[in-house]
Design a protein around this nucleic acid. Structure first.
Lengths: 189, 189
DNA sequence: CTATCAAACTAACAATCGTTAGTTTTGTTT
DNA sequence: AAACAAAACTAACGATTGTTAGTTTGATAG
């Protein structure tokens, strides 16, 4: 076996470092030191620093696309769909909070092909989100505020979960889901 | 006059580049090319790359601290205070959206002294925010959801405004304030 | 004109970057 | 014990990094 697990260990360690300092500020020697080996040894397992970044980001982006697609084709109400989107973000955050840092902050360092692929997915995701909200406004389930503001407000919170949730200790995932749905959809006053 | 304005031009150009690629990925030669001069010439106006970053971030952080202090000592209701916080973030975002990118994403590259100062200010700001919400829950103005979730949800949206607002064309600042207050406080359903 | 001075320049530095080539170690299988 | 492969190593490369030293340019004031 060509040590796929060792490669994953490197990617996981890189995710942590990228979250702390960002892709550009992390050197291959930093990553090697974390793994307890020399920088050159990393190349027995990975092809390049760029491969690490793109693996982290593209994998996560495809997860979001797959999750959103399921929600879009479902026959739920708008409110249920929004609840499912919140669930999706919380689930992905619980599974890979470190990797989400790269997806959110280092996507611009992807190289040409993967950059275009990522941006296409992000646009598709946002369009789906916007369309769900738009339909909700149209059928009266959602208040008639500016759609862009509602989408941005919700999505910005969900996208930033990876920064906040790992620092919380006393919040169970299911309680988080429930309260986050309440706060995001019904407001605080 | 020791060309304070030329220094500000450099800082403004750096803010734009830092927003696009992050502090670590921007080289002094990148910045010089943007200014139409050679990298060495930058040092007639600034002391170091680090000075540019700390100027951008510390100035903005102090603005937030000053704004928050005014709100804290006011005799407004909790809801009014939250509305004023939203106003504060929108005002700062309109004035310096580029710089906010560094404050949000590159603060960890500050050096020892400024890093500690920044982190102290951030903690102070969040504590003030949390205390305002806590009092609002105590006197019944705010719903009794988890306080951490409410603070995070609101603050994460306000902190990310700099990414979103510059891309919006048809949204007037006053309409944005009004709608943002509605969405963040009263929810979308 | 000439003196002055800010602001540009050229040239170079030591350090560090991602990465490659070739070699040795380590652990398992025959 | 011999053979093999995985995974570590040493050494080095060319490029790029932030920054410095010293010099030239160009506009302004006497």
């Amino acid at each position: 076996m060509k040590s796929e697990s060792r490669k994953q260990e490197i990617i996981n360690a890189a995710s942590v470092l990228f979250k702390e300092k960002g892709y550009s500020a992390v050197t291959m020697r930093d990553l090697a030191k974390t793994m307890g080996i020399k920088a050159a040894s990393l190349y027995n397992h990975i092809q390049s620093k760029q491969e690490i970044l793109s693996t982290i980001i593209i994998e996560l982006a495809e997860e979001f696309i797959a999750g959103m697609d399921k929600i879009v084709v479902s026959d739920h109400t708008t409110v249920q769909k929004l609840e499912n989107i919140i669930d999706l973000h919380i689930d992905v955050t619980l599974r890979n909070a470190d990797g989400l840092a790269s997806l959110n902050s280092d996507w611009m360092h992807l190289e040409e092909e993967n950059l275009q692929y990522f941006e296409k997915m992000r646009l598709e995701y946002e369009d789906n989100f916007r369309e769900i909200v738009r339909k909700g406004v149209a059928n009266g389930e959602i208040k008639s505020y500016n759609i862009e503001i509602m989408v941005f407000s919700t999505l910005s919170t969900l996208r930033t979960l990876y920064l906040w949730y790992p620092k919380q200790q006393n919040i169970d995932a299911n309680i988080l889901k429930k309260d986050m749905i309440s706060v995001l959809l019904k407001g605080v006053v």
